[in-house]
Amino acid sequence: MEKILSDKKAIFLFVFPAFLVFLVIVLLPIFFSFYYSLLKWDGFSKGVFIGLQNYKNLFINNTDGFIISVKNSFILAVLSVFIQLPISLLLALILSRGIKGEKFYRTVYFIPVILSTVVIGQLWMKIYNPNYGLLNFILTKIGLQSLTNQWLGNTKTALGAVFVPILWQYIGYHMLLMYASAKSIPTDIYEAAKIDGATESQIAFRITIPLMKPILKVCVIFAVIGSFKAFDLIYVLTNGGPLHASEVPSTLMYNMIFFRYQYGYGSAMAIFIILESLIGTIIIQKLFGKDEAY
């Protein structure tokens, strides 16, 4: 049996195809990207090695909107952590304590998560449409005509307008993660607390939330990293415009590479996004401290 299970040919046949595809498509390109980021290259002529110049250009005397884009992605990260996650947490706490229709609400809240971002983006584009959109229509109907706006076309409102659907779409996702975690807490802890006269909010803040720390950490990491990498909805809604008002690093990277043919400089942005995500993950891990549960 040992012989069968250490059959080299079978192991090779089983593992090699997957490993090869994975290596060539997922891992190697990262090294390529890093290499490209050291070049001045338009994709047609031969690239010239310029060391870290592309990275310097990202931060020193930058005029192409990169600094704004990083700032915007940070704002999105902050909003995700301090608006999106608290709403998810509240919903998760209510649902996990057993309320009528628990399963129904959970199922409904999760629907936006599984829909294509293109569908969500197109839908919100119609909601924001200045002439016939849902938002301006409702504002007019309730007498707040003065608030109607060219939501996506106005540099003042574009950023907020693209953030709303992003936050809206993934509230259900975080809720479900938190809900699953809250549900796994043994109920006798609650019963004991109740006998001792604890109120529902005391139970939530003193028992449930502390016990959910591992999943809260995961949610914060997802929310922050997801914000650093945000692309789809912004690309569909504004493509970073108007005048970089809603630009994030990945939309800028995309346009830099595929519309302005700055392969080297765009790759530096890609590498920046990976490093930013990695460092972000490590910092959040540290902030939450070592967790005992997992």
């Binding site: 299970l5 490993f19 390529f32 990207s33």
Partner: peptide
């Protein structure tokens, strides 16, 4: 199955869960 590098290969595969597709876009395109 029993082979020397199974743990290493698993670790490499799992690292892939953290790779954002942005970083592979241009190399894959090329």
């Amino acid at each position: 199955m029993k082979w020397k590098y199974s743990k290493l290969v698993l670790t490499i595969f799992l690292m892939g869960m953290m790779v954002p597709i942005h970083a592979t876009l241009l190399p894959l395109f090329i």
